[in-house]
Amino acid sequence: MSDLGEAGTLAAIGTMAAVTYAMRAGGFWLMSRVRLTARLRRTLEALPGTVVVATVLPIAVREGLPALLGIAAACSAMVLRRNDFLAVIVGMAVAALARAWLI
């Protein structure tokens, strides 16, 4: 197939943007055509937690001990102090230190 040349980068960015907007709007649109039962509502309400667990765990396992320590430290800081900013800083500091010392 032929090279799209100069326009290629713009076409690529446009494609990426279109697909991503379809994801952003698609779930909302789809759920407006589906009858919302109590079970479906509970399923949707559980999504924030399960999306995060399903994203974080495979990445953490792939990245090894420093990542796991950093995430554990960040969650502990969040439970103890309820401060998102502090928790992120603590988590990154622990992960960076663990990398420096363990690897």
Partner: peptide
């Protein structure tokens, strides 16, 4: 970015945001 754990911002940030949902 790995040296200051910048590549781990996403999972750490996610984990912190979701902790109150427990």
């Amino acid at each position: 970015p790995r040296r200051i754990a910048l590549d781990l911002v996403l999972p750490i940030f996610f984990a912190v945001m979701v902790t109150p949902f427990w």
